[in-house]
């Protein structure tokens, strides 16, 4: 898959939060999922990343936070080139990734433990981490869910808790992989409200055009070569 596009907002000047240059990646040797990908996310942008199933959208987000190492090309984040695992520690704290499958993201017994896991890793004290966690749960409208067992929530609730775990770390960038999957209309509308109010730059993967229309400032389409 190839594409792409300089930044309409900053015209490619060095304001990019996340920038991929000529990135290529393959899970299986000689079967590239993406090749020669250029991408840039600038301040206050909300980019819709679209493409067919299997086009490599989720893969791109994972490359951005260093969960997958590209075979070629350069990954820049927050003004620095990132190559090694160590380089990405900081990136992961500043760019929050919402996974496509919430079940992969929630691993603690209770909701509150899961949400404060990130802040604790950022070095916050127990009390401050708790405060952050409560705030995040409040933002997604799940106050009172603190002591619920994470894996016994409904699909939509899991999505929102997963979003809270990301928000609790107060990232500067949100990378959202199908945040609307499994949400009903009402919850979806609420999610739009939540995201509209957030100041962060975002990359949003979604197949829901209605949802995207309300949020995004720019669209990027992955096209097969």
């Amino acid at each position: 898959m190839v594409v792409f596009l300089g930044c309409a907002v900053c015209g490619g000047v060095a304001m990019g939060l996340i920038k991929l240059t000529a990135v290529s990646f393959s899970y299986i040797p000689d079967k590239p999922v993406i090749s020669g990908l250029d991408f840039e996310l600038c301040n206050a942008e909300r980019i819709a990343l679209s493409g067919a199933n299997g086009a490599g959208k989720s893969t791109i987000l994972k490359i951005m936070v260093g969960l997958l190492q590209p075979d070629g090309g350069v990954v820049e984040a927050f003004g620095r080139v990132r190559t090694k695992e160590r380089d990405f520690y900081e990136v992961r704290s500043r760019a929050g990734l919402l996974f496509q499958d919430a079940d992969d993201q929630l691993f603690s017994p209770t909701v509150i433990e899961d949400v404060r896991f990130g802040p604790l890793n950022q070095g916050l004290s127990q009390t401050n981490a708790d405060i952050k966690a409560h705030q995040a749960l409040q933002i997604v409208g799940l106050s009172g869910f603190e002591d619920r067992v994470a894996h016994k929530l409904s699909g939509g609730e899991k999505r929102l808790v997963a979003l809270a775990t990301v928000l609790a770390m107060e990232p500067e960038v949100l990378l959202l992989d199908e945040p609307t999957a499994g949400l009903d209309n009402k919850t979806m509308a609420r999610l739009v409200g939540i995201l509209e109010d957030l100041p962060q730059a975002m990359v949003i993967i979604s197949h829901d055009q209605n949802f995207l229309k309300k949020l995004v400032t720019r669209r990027v389409n992955l096209v097969p070569t």
Binding site: K62, V65, L67, Y89, R92, S93, G96, L97, F99, D101, D104, Q105, F107, E113, F117, G118, L120, N121, Q122, Q126, T165, V166, M169
Partner: peptide, 20 residues
């Protein structure tokens, strides 16, 4: 995948001590 999710939230090989 869970390890990936944990890394995304700053996990570097050990759990934060919860109780002082």
């Amino acid at each position: 995948r869970v390890l990936a999710a944990m890394k995304c939230r700053g996990f570097r090989g050990s759990f934060p001590t919860v109780a002082e």
